[in-house]
Design a protein around this nucleic acid. Structure first.
Length: 477
RNA sequence: GGCCCCAUCGUCUAUCGGUUAGGACAUCAGGUUUUCAUCCUGGUAAGCGCGGUUCGAUUCCGCGUGGGGUCACCA
């Protein structure tokens, strides 16, 4: 069978990492079976749509390296791929259901519906439409439509029917149709609802496998009822578990941190690392190897192996993966990727010397600022730490001696090897404990306890500034 | 609250009735290193509770508990 999957986001803002993760799975499954991955834009809510929403979706998918075979920007045989351009189809299908008595016109106002729901809640019964307009006479309907009274089309849901579908991840799931609302199919503004549009489009676009978030499980019976009303063949369903907040409390939400796919790129995560993280979160390969390429993933991914439980979005693991991917980069690649993260005051002429020194220390690209700031910004030295492992007299002596030894190095000989020889000789001659002396020097030179190797660090700071800092430290004690 | 889904170390997972319950991240300890990081070695740490089924249950079934999702003219 020819596999066709799709991602159907709505252009209402930046894409959530959960949506991106689901896109990846749809992409991988289609590719694995030599099928197509389709991108469709669900812009049926005019009130929530944002201006550049469609571009935002395409951009973010491209940034993460997920390509689509049909959809906006690439075309295809099943277009248009933007729902607002398919309005006449939904209308036609909705009216077809009305004529077959499987759907009906409804003139209820928002106020009446709200009142109804309120009273139902008060009585502690589940809020549900009361089918008020289901039994209107043909004459009345005709007359009210002709007088331009706002109306919607609702699905006439049959009572007490068992609806069962097989979820690729969870197996059989059943609902009783009596718990399903007479869903609105066509809104009063002529736009379809999500439920109407997905079913019509997934059918018309020959989608074979619907992989979507777990939050859609409870609307699946609505969709199945629609497929049945039309007499269409059901696609396969796979409901992917949702991501939980890092604290494990509830669906990953804006309130508890960053959720947009873009925000992770902005904070220095590599797209490849993000993708790899999505791969292994809630899914494990047979050999349990966790670092893999997109290609390897495509070869191994099967939705039926996806975890059935919602999973915590574990930032610690993400950080580790990101570090692994950064370390795999060549210095040239790193240089290119890290450029947007350089602080304004970064001495770019020193970048190629500094980069190798911090390469394996980067967890995200954005770490570069705090890992390198002492190279080019004013430092503050903690006197306590300076004197932590030795006496004032000895530290003073060490600083003075180091100062004069470094001073003596010709500017043209200022390089790592010369500095190292000079400083090591000095330490040996005076019998200073390397641990104490080198740490003291590191602190005086950078203000930091953690730096790249000492002599490289001294070299990069530069002779002039180095001498200034040692002299300043001397004054402190 | 109704309906639906789920339940192994802190986190993500392996186990498809019989295992010293394995791995990864995190964490801790040690080694390498002048610090940090990398790298290497080792440790701590788990099958929610109660009933069944079975010679035997983490594994199968039921109930309870806990977590999650969902109840719009939003997707």
């Amino acid at each position: 069978m020819k596999v066709r999957t799709r991602m159907a986001p709505s252009p209402t803002g930046e894409m959530h990492v959960g949506s991106l993760s689901i896109s990846l799975k749809n992409y991988a499954f289609a590719k694995r079976h030599g099928g197509q991955f389709i991108l469709r834009i669900e812009d049926t809510d005019k009130t929530r749509e944002i201006e550049n929403g469609v571009e935002l979706i395409q951009d973010i998918l491209k940034k993460y390296g997920i390509t689509w075979d049909e959809g906006p920007g690439v075309g295809g045989d099943h277009g248009p791929y933007i729902q607002s351009q398919r309005l006449d189809m939904y209308k036609k299908y909705a009216e077809q259901l009305v004529s077959e008595k499987k759907a009906y016109y409804c003139f209820c106002t928002t106020e009446r519906l709200e009142k109804l729901r309120d009273s139902q809640r008060e009585q502690k019964i589940p809020p549900k439409y009361d089918s008020h307009c289901k039994s209107l006479s043909a004459d009345e309907i005709k007359q009210r439509i002709e007088s331009n009274e706002p109306h919607v089309i609702r699905l006439a849901v049959p009572q007490n029917r068992e609806i069962t579908f097989t979820d690729l991840i969870r197996g059989d799931i059943s609902f009783n149709s009596s718990t399903v609302d007479d869903q609105v199919l066509l809104k009063s503004d002529g736009y379809p609802t999500y439920h109407m549009a997905v079913v019509v489009d997934d059918h018309l676009m020959d989608i074979t496998h619907i992989m979507r978030g777990e939050e859609w499980i409870s609307s699946t019976p609505k969709h199945i009822l629609l497929y049945q009303a039309f007499g269409w063949e059901l696609p396969q369903f796979a409901h992917i578990p949702v991501y939980l907040n890092p604290d494990g409390q509830g669906k990953m939400s804006k309130r508890k941190g960053h959720v947009s796919a873009q925000s992770f790129l902005d904070r220095g995560y590599l797209p490849e690392a993000m993708l790899n993280f999505f791969m292994i979160l809630g899914w494990a390969r047979e050999d349990e190897i966790e670092i893999m390429t997109l290609d390897e993933y495509v070869k191994a991914f099967d939705p039926k192996d996806v975890s059935q439980k919602s999973v915590v979005f574990d930032i610690k693991k993400l950080n580790w993966i990101n570090g692994v991917y950064i370390r795999k980069l060549t210095v040239e690649q790193l240089l290119e990727k890290i450029t947007p993260f350089l602080p304004n005051d970064f001495p770019t002429q020193k970048l190629s010397i500094i980069l190798p020194l911090i390469h394996e220390r980067l967890e995200t690209l954005a770490d570069i600022e705090q890992l390198t700031s002492f190279f080019y910004r004013d430092i503050s030295v903690d006197t306590q730490l300076l004197l932590k492992k030795s006496s004032v007299t000895e530290v003073k002596q060490q600083l003075e001696a180091t100062l004069s030894v470094l001073q003596a190095i010709e500017p043209k000989n200022w390089n790592v090897a010369t500095i190292e020889i000079a400083v090591r000789e000095l330490a040996e001659k005076n019998n200073w404990k390397p641990g104490q002396y080198f740490m003291m020097l590191r602190l005086a030179a950078t203000g930091s306890k953690a730096t790249p190797p000492l002599f490289d660090t001294l070299y990069v700071v530069g002779k002039e500034l180095m001498l200034q800092r040692l002299a300043a430290a001397l004054k402190l004690i």
